[in-house]
Design a binder for these strands. Structure first.
Length: 851
RNA sequence: GGGCGCGUAGCUCAGUGGGAGAGCGCUUGCUUCACACGCAAGAGGUCGCAGGUUCAAAACCUGCCGCGCCCACCA
């Protein structure tokens, strides 16, 4: 046995291999990309994980797919760059650090802004790298020399530059509008950060008495407390029932304010009573109605959603839910409550971070991105194919979203994030600048104060594909690697992130950010349920890597990532199965390497290849072509499946088993067989490497003198190895062998030795079997296929049958005559079916009359 | 309310006009000199239901039933 197989234990141990290569690859500089370059550039930027994050299985999926693409591109000779980095994750991080502080009994407001931000930075230094180490453990081939952080100096400059450019172009403005306020996190949110959820609420109908005492108007609401801030009643302009009341007034029952009745198209006369209470400061629809009809705004909540001094006195200081009950009691007392319907199902907005109910609220002046003028270009890029979505159906979702998109609130009342680059002088003039200005651009006042708010986290994320490459500077990296080749991400951030990258890329970097967008589903548990701590069904990728190896996790994820379905179920069983697959490859390599001497395997000359060898080359060629086609279309599951099938069911089950005969034979057959197997194995390792980098590298090293499979060449398909004859004959042989095995199993006949099997069968049956040999010979077009007559010394009435092809043993045995009869009748049926098909086709084409 | 996806073996899913498949699970036999993380054989399916198109439908069309998701200012 050659030297290098000595250290191959019968079981593949990922733990002994993976950590070594994970660092050796990085240390060897294999993942570093250069610009400028003569090669074709291929760039992916990592969707930056939050600094607060631990690797979860969703990351594992995304990184696996990206790494597969990048590794393949690198092997294809492209200048492959995968940019690593992290996101500062404004709210998420601030909340985590605040929680840490609270444990020490500190409130961030006592600490002050600067000290707090310092705390966040030191927290980031201490814990922020955790996820990076975990991504490294997965074998992700990122160029760590280019690691970025959304709050680093370069990216902060990019953020300010983007802000200023858009401000100067009129795409950023400041305005007082209703924002989605989270009373817990104390900040406004964009529409996309609000999650709507159906809840069982109530619909309460109550009466507003008309000012002139002539009656009352009934209105309904799901949020009774907001009636404290009502400034109008709205009805549809065409509604006969209320025509005479428009222009008159009702009286607020608690504080006696007079409230006008107005007409507006937004009111649906068919819903409820057809009259709507209008609370402009706490509802978007009402805000719009007020804007159109001139109703005043009455803000009744403070930042924590407690009733403020603007409402009737007796409710002051109550939280919004307490206020609801207090209002209800008061209405009952005044006999104004008409009815309560429960449950009433309706959608309520919740904060995407803390899940509190969102309160539409006026929180002073906020900054907005005007989407008119940005979204049209983003839409066009998808429609004309400059950005291609996979699966294609997401294009439509994206376009629809853009069509309905409203201006984007980018102010956040937080401390952790990019401070808005706007300064105000005492006269209220606004100066927007990339670097802190020394004086007001309007009145030259030196007394400037910067806007206290920070920008939405997604404002910096949207610049990620170009800011990481050096934008706004005109760098080599940017010129070489922009636009990126592809973006891989889950559909849950298609709107929050992907759409905005396309808008900002087109507007600021002058081109689409990436050519392809690969949208994958959410990883769910074995039964399609969302993974959650409370269900106890969370699969921790690190735990899985410890138990089964990163290759196993990667392969099982890739195999599950089918294009069709929405979400991706993952069971530990499937990871275990992938681990077994790695072990199978390992052992195939043990067998092959035990026989093969030398380094780079050379294919024996064509005339020295046996029929099963021609078949194996043909199957390998098919596998390579399938993998190529699948990866071109981002069909990772198909690629994984093709390799699994080839390696296990074809290479091992038939190829190795058949070749064992030749490996046991003398030279030069033995060496030919070993070289051919090694050649196929080595190429298949390269094919598999993008998905299972570790085990393939470890084995591949036995074929190489140094270097790394990660920078070896991609095995393009060899169409010249396609061999229809060999495939056809092997299929027949496989069928016959299977028939033999079936017979053996049915009759519980156990071969005395493994190969060749020696079976006692009736002599008359053996005679019937004879013609089959001729048939196989004809099919194969080979000589040397024959039945060996029974060796001497066997009991009378029995004979032993062994099938050989050429000089090599096949799993031998008895041919089941009945099975062959079935096969022939099946062939006849197939022939009939073929004839029928041809007849049908001809009929369809109009060549013959239909039956 | 609008849109999207799904329904195929016990489970999870491939399969888009002509042989109903894979992995896991299950049953049986096998420690066989690459691998028991293995080998071999096997059981198991009205392809959600109904109609239509076609010589031919799991696939295409229509309707229905069931499940899931996204978007949305009916209070």
């Amino acid at each position: 046995m050659p030297e290098r197989t000595r250290d191959l234990p019968p079981r593949y141990d990922p733990a002994a291999v993976e950590p070594h290569w994970a660092t050796a690859w990085v240390d060897g500089g294999y993942f570093h990309a250069q610009a400028p370059t003569d090669r074709e550039p291929y760039c992916i930027v990592i969707p930056p994980p939050n600094v607060t994050g631990r690797l979860h299985v969703g990351h594992a999926l995304g990184r696996t797919l990206e790494d597969a693409l990048i590794r393949r591109a690198r092997m294809q000779g492209k200048e492959a760059l995968w940019v690593p980095g992290m996101d500062h994750a404004g709210i998420a991080t601030q909340v985590v650090v605040e929680r840490e502080l609270r444990k020490e009994g500190i409130d961030r407001r006592e600490l002050g802004r600067e000290a707090f931000i310092e705390r966040v930075w030191s927290w980031k230094e201490q814990y922020g790298g955790e996820i990076v180490d975990q991504i490294k453990r997965m074998g992700a081939s990122l160029d760590w020399e280019r690691e970025r952080f959304t709050m680093d100096e370069g990216l902060s400059l990019a953020v300010r530059t983007a802000f200023v450019r858009w401000y100067e172009q009129g795409f950023i403005y400041r305005g007082e509008r209703l924002v989605n306020w989270c009373p817990t996190d104390q900040t406004g949110l964009s529409d996309s950060e609000v999650e709507h959820e159906e809840v069982d609420g109530e619909l309460v109908t109550f009466r507003y008495p008309l000012s002139d005492g002539s009656g009352s108007v009934e209105v309904a609401t799901t949020r009774l407390e907001t009636m404290l801030g009502d400034t109008g009643i709205a009805v549809h302009p065409d509604d006969e029932r209320y025509r005479d009341l428009v222009g008159t007034k009702v009286r607020h029952p608690f504080d006696g304010r007079e409230i006008p009745i107005v007409a507006d198209d937004a009111v649906d006369p068919a819903f409820g009573t057809g009259a709507v209470k209008v609370t402009p400061a706490h509802d978007q629809t009402d805000f719009d109605i007020a804007h159109r009809t001139g109703l005043p705004l009455l803000n009744i909540f403070d930042a924590e959603a407690r009733v403020n001094a603007n409402a009737a006195e007796e409710f002051y200081g109550l939280g919004r839910y307490d206020a609801r009950e207090a209002v209800r009691e008061e209405l009952v007392k005044l006999d104004l409550l008409v009815r309560e319907e429960r449950p009433f199902r309706h959608a309520v907005g919740h904060c995407y971070r803390c899940h509190s109910e969102i309160e539409p609220w006026i929180s002073g002046l906020q900054w907005f991105v005007k989407v008119e003028g940005l979204k049209e270009a983003a839409k066009r890029a998808a429609l004309d194919g400059r950005v291609r979505f996979t699966p294609e159906r997401w294009t439509r979702a994206y376009v629809t979203w853009l069509d309905n998109l409203r201006d984007w609130n980018i102010s956040r009342q937080l401390w952790w994030g990019h401070r808005i680059p706007a300064w105000y002088c005492p006269d209220g003039h606004v100066t927007v600048a990339i670097q802190p200005p020394t004086e007001c651009s309007t009145c030259a006042s030196a007394e400037l104060e910067q806007d206290p708010d920070v920008l939405d986290t997604w404002f910096s994320s949207q610049l990620w594909p170009f800011s990481t490459l050096g934008w706004p500077d005109d760098t080599e990296d940017l010129r070489t690697f922009y636009p990126n080749a592809v973006l891989v991400t889950g559909y849950e951030i298609l709107y929050l992130w992907v759409a905005r990258m396309i808008m900002s890329g087109l507007s600021l970097a002058g081109d689409v950010p990436f050519r392809d967008v690969v949208i994958h589903g959410l990883v769910r548990d074995a039964h399609g349920r969302k993974m959650s701590k409370s269900l106890g069904n969370v699969i921790d990728p690190i735990e899985m890597i410890d138990r089964y190896g990163a290759d196993a996790l990667r392969f099982s994820l890739a195999r599950a990532a089918t294009g069709g379905q929405q979400d991706i179920p993952l069971a530990e069983d499937s990871i275990e199965g992938a681990r077994n697959f790695a072990n199978k490859i390992w052992n195939a390599a043990r067998l092959v390497l035990g026989a093969f001497e030398g380094d780079l395997p050379q294919l024996p000359a064509a005339e020295r290849r046996t029929l099963p060898e021609r078949w194996l080359l043909s199957r390998h060629q098919v596998c390579a072509a399938e993998v190529d086609a699948a990866l071109d279309e981002y069909l990772f599951a198909d690629a994984a499946q093709a390799m699994f099938r080839f390696l296990w069911s074809e290479f091992c089950d038939w190829g190795l088993e058949i070749e064992k005969g030749r490996l046991d034979a003398g030279e030069p057959e033995r060496a030919d067989a070993a070289a051919l197997l090694a050649w196929v194995l080595e190429r298949t390792l390269r094919l598999l490497h993008p998905i299972m980098p570790f085990v393939t590298e470890e084995i591949w090293q036995r074929f190489a003198r140094g270097g790394s499979i990660s920078v070896s060449s991609w095995p393009d398909p060899h169409p010249e190895h396609a061999d229809a004859d060999a495939e056809r004959v092997m299929l027949a042989l496989q069928e016959i062998v299977t028939a033999v095995r079936r017979f053996r199993a049915r009759h519980r006949i156990t071969p005395s030795r493994r190969f060749p099997a020696r079976l006692g069968i009736p002599a008359d049956l053996a005679r019937e079997v004879e013609p089959l040999a001729e048939r196989i010979e004809r099919l194969a077009g080979l000589d040397g296929l024959a039945f060996v007559e029974p060796p001497a010394g066997k009991p009378a009435g029995e004979t032993t049958v062994t099938l050989t092809v050429g000089a090599m043993y096949l799993p031998p045995g008895l041919f089941d005559v009945e099975a062959e009869r079935v096969r022939l009748s099946k062939e006849r049926a197939e022939l009939d079916a073929d004839l029928a098909r041809v007849r049908g086709k001809l009929a369809n084409e109009g060549f013959v009359a239909k039956a």
